[in-house]
Computed example of a mutant assay.
Amino acid sequence: MTERASTRDHARVAVTVDLLIFTVRQGALHVLLIERGHAPFEGQVALPGGYVRTGEHLDAAALRELREETGIDGSRLHLEQLRTYGDPDRDPRGRVITVAYLALGPDMPAAQAGTDARHAEWTPVKAILEGRINLAFDHEVILREGLERARFQLEYTTVAAAFCTEPFTIAELRHIYEVVWGLTLDASNFRRKVTGAHGFLIPTGKHRTQEIGRPAALYRRGPAQLLSPPLLRSSDVHRSSPNLLVLH
């Protein structure tokens, strides 16, 4: 080994996982947050997460931290890696690289705080985006990028059904798209698109009685992972309503 190589400055790095969990509650998109019980940022709200243990796989660490800090079983969620965040000054404790996970799930039960979290609760995403709630570390950056990933996935994959409890109606599925995208969709056009997408929905042959109108047909998620054709967000707005989006 040369002298230059032996004296090279190598960063001492710790690895964490952070969990970005979205669900739809009370007609709005919510994210799971915890109140930190220790420094740094003691008493502030943040995404659940923590250090990866020696010999522990990243996915296992994510599931463990979610369970320990919130009491939620992540094995039943659509869970995937979002991206890695490693800015040198993102954590005042030193060089900490975090692997952020994105999870989507149907209406979830109340969270229960544990380990180093004082409190855990579902929080409206809108409150964070509007600046009424500030997150510790760079967690707002993670949230905003994860939200855009979720919105993109609804265009090209069948993941929207992960928000729905089976069996579900077309109207319930449309509500998921509207909440995540922040748009109002044309009902008849949406129905035509999702029922025409190969392998997206499977009719159960059953119906649910509604207070108004005819009984609604019930569906479950089909085997497809990708939407064919995709459901693209559009800039074309229906003239009669400034919030009504017509899918193309």
Score class of each variant (00 low, 15 high):
209 T>N: 07
248 H>Y: 07
80 E>A: 08
187 A>E: 15
119 H>V: 00
10 H>I: 13
133 I>K: 15
45 V>R: 13
199 G>P: 01
171 A>M: 06
75 S>P: 03
45 V>G: 04
2 T>P: 07
120 A>W: 01
34 I>M: 05
122 W>D: 02
116 D>E: 15
123 T>A: 11
140 E>D: 10
105 G>H: 00
110 A>P: 02
176 I>L: 05
139 H>E: 03
159 V>C: 04
69 E>N: 01
211 E>I: 13
187 A>M: 12
183 L>K: 11
107 D>G: 10
181 W>K: 09
226 L>C: 06
18 D>T: 12
215 P>C: 11
159 V>T: 09
240 S>C: 14
45 V>M: 08
4 R>T: 14
226 L>P: 03
245 L>Y: 12
220 R>D: 09
25 R>W: 00
99 V>I: 12
161 A>N: 08
209 T>R: 13
176 I>G: 05
238 H>Q: 11
148 E>N: 09
86 G>S: 14
66 L>K: 00
104 L>W: 02
32 L>N: 00
237 V>Q: 07
94 G>K: 05
53 R>F: 10
80 E>D: 07
56 E>F: 02
131 G>F: 03
135 L>C: 07
4 R>H: 10
83 R>M: 12
79 L>S: 00
245 L>E: 09
78 H>K: 06
157 T>Q: 13
182 G>K: 07
87 D>G: 09
99 V>K: 05
180 V>S: 02
86 G>D: 13
165 T>H: 08
212 I>K: 11
77 L>M: 01
224 A>R: 01
235 S>K: 14
169 T>C: 08
58 L>S: 14
227 L>D: 08
246 V>T: 14
125 V>F: 03
